[in-house]
């Protein structure tokens, strides 16, 4: 009897405890990712095309792009650095709206961009207000 407990039950308990520990650590308390740098884009589009899809029919565009990783190509209009994040604003000349891309500071430091650059940026599409909004962005090139 004692032998059985030692052989099966104790290792069993340790195993279950480990499973619970890793579940809690890596699932329940998992920290939000700060960048999509390592993930593949679901869509690759020109900035102007992405914007016009939202301008034409927001609902259709939401159904297609919301929560997806979108890679946009376009011209950087300006870069804003605040204490919490960095925003790269991609906008065509003469337009009043564009694509607002929010970066985690560390990711932007790894690979950034500046005003006037032609860039490809990927991020998670959160929706459309005055601009199309991409979060957790990373510069592709």
């Amino acid at each position: 009897m004692w032998k059985n407990i030692r052989r099966y039950i104790i290792p069993g308990i340790i195993f279950i405890a480990l499973v619970v520990f890793f579940f809690v650590k890596f699932y329940v308390f998992k920290e939000s990712a700060t960048t999509v740098a390592s993930q593949k884009a679901d869509f690759v589009v020109e900035a102007g095309d992405l914007l016009s899809t939202f301008e034409k029919d927001e609902k259709v565009a939401n159904d297609k792009y919301l929560n997806k990783i979108v890679e946009v190509k376009g011209l950087v209009d300006n870069v804003t650095d605040t204490k919490d994040d960095i925003t790269v604003y991609i906008k065509q000349k003469g337009k009043t709206s564009g694509i607002m891309c929010s970066f985690d500071k560390k990711e932007f430091k790894r690979k950034g961009a500046k005003s006037g650059d032609e860039v490809s940026v990927k991020g998670i599409c959160s929706g459309y207000l005055m601009d199309v909004i991409l979060n957790k962005c990373a510069v592709v090139r």
């Binding site: 329940v28 308390f29 998992k30 920290e31 939000s32 990712a33 919301l66 929560n67 998670i124 959160s126 929706g127 909004i133 979060n135």
Partner: peptide, 8 residues
């Protein structure tokens, strides 16, 4: 969707 939490 723009609300950011610490925990995913």
């Amino acid at each position: 969707k723009s609300f950011e939490f610490k925990r995913a």
